[in-house]
């Protein structure tokens, strides 16, 4: 069995930041909680899972380069940061890391544009 073609995994990373702004790894969880206790939490997690399946692309709508590299570096709230090597951030971007730059309206706009460009409808 070659696991790689079939498997994907969403990890929950727990990271501590010290007072010098250095990050420390606490642990990695392979089954981060996807249940929600508030409406905001539900919306975030629903969107997160929706974006997981947009990246995983069960229906194979998204294109890949000759080296297998995904052509879309941003899918919903996900940014591709590594594919066999570091993915260079967009030079035009204000921030080089998009962590903490989540905006639900941006996400919706991006997804609409993405699905329109691959000729698919919604979802």
């Amino acid at each position: 069995m070659i696991s790689d073609k079939h498997c994907f995994e969403m990890y929950g990373y727990d990271i501590l930041i010290d007072e010098t702004l250095k990050p420390w790894l606490i642990e990695v969880n392979a089954s981060p909680s996807i249940t929600a206790d508030t409406i905001q939490d539900y919306d975030l997690k629903f969107g997160l899972l929706e974006d997981v399946y947009s990246v995983v692309d069960v229906e194979q709508k998204l294109g890949h380069g000759v080296d297998g590299r995904p052509l879309e570096p941003t899918v919903g709230g996900f940014d591709l940061i590594y594919h066999g090597e570091k993915v260079r951030p967009d030079r035009q971007a204000t921030y080089t890391s998009k962590l903490g730059c989540f905006d639900p309206a941006d996400r919706q706009r991006g997804l609409r544009k993405l699905w329109a460009s691959v000729g698919a409808t919604g979802k």
Binding site: L44, L48, D51, V55, P70, V75, G77, F78, D79, L80, I81, Y82, H83, G84, K98, L99, G100, C101, F102
Partner: peptide, 8 residues
């Protein structure tokens, strides 16, 4: 290795 990170 292919890695995506979530903004939120």
């Amino acid at each position: 290795l292919t890695v995506y990170i979530y903004r939120s």
